[in-house]
Write a protein that binds this DNA or RNA. Structure first.
Lengths: 135, 135
DNA sequence: TAATTCAGCGCAATTACTTGCAATTAATTC
DNA sequence: GAATTAATTGCAAGTAATTGCGCTGAATTA
């Protein structure tokens, strides 16, 4: 439970912040609009700018992560639920998954050659899924 | 020269479209605003919505690519100039590069295990650069 | 070259997202 | 529990990006 962790970072644990984090966890992949709608079920008067600010604060603190699954807006998910790589088909938009271990050698090559510590959980991999390659 | 290629896809080759493509090539990594400013040097009255639409059309047609280098807006670059992976440091924002060949084995694993054909040129790799790891 | 077609344009409206600021309130201290 | 501090909020304004629509013009055809 990150409530103490939120306070440990000098942040306030406000009801709005707790609700935004809960909504991100509950929804899995979610747009800011979807998160706001979920939060409004418990807190009807919450302002959208409050949701956006909390999303940014929670991401900076490491509790959530955002990715751009295709063009347009970002989607958010809880950081501790990242257990797979996201494979996003550019043709049909389907999101498949692959084990983090599949990127292990690749991550080591980049670290050795460039000194760059990759955060493989923080990006979606674009390409074409098996079904769309047939077309 | 993709002028014939643009027409081959049933698209018109308008002066505005040509200028947008030229601007993306000239600027390398560029935001829509930067692209619009460059285009306006040759075509002062062009509308920003025209720039946005042409960016989307050119990307759909495969001439340019956009990535989200960090939070916020996208940046665009010409598709045929993709020769490296982009390594984006989440701490200082610096963009480093690594050879496409470094992802070769990783791409093969994903294709074999998931049947997913990765387009490695279409994403930025997030993490921490060598300098920021020292901190 | 003129007529025709319809992709593309400019404009204004709209949507998505961010920011400045005064008021509120979570957390701390006494 | 009261006083204090400053992070956070709601609101309105502002910026970034998208969309609907009537008109324009690139490309085709005769």
């Amino acid at each position: 439970m990150p409530q103490d962790e939120i306070r440990a970072r000098g942040l306030r644990l406000t009801p709005q912040r707790q609700l935004v984090l809960n909504a991100v966890r509950e929804l899995g992949h979610a747009t800011p609009e979807e998160i706001a709608n979920t939060v409004r079920q418990m807190h009807p008067g919450i302002n959208l700018s409050t949701v956006y600010r909390n999303l940014e604060t929670l991401e900076t603190a490491g509790f959530i992560i955002h990715t751009h699954l295709g063009h347009g807006g970002a989607t958010y998910h809880a950081a501790d639920e990242i257990t797979h790589l996201h494979l996003v088909c550019g043709k049909c938009g389907k999101v498949d998954e692959s084990e983090l271990a599949d990127a292990k050698d690749f991550v080591e090559i980049i670290l050795k050659k460039r000194g760059f510590a990759t955060d493989v959980t923080h990006f979606a991999i674009y390409g074409t899924c098996a079904a769309c390659q047939v077309k």
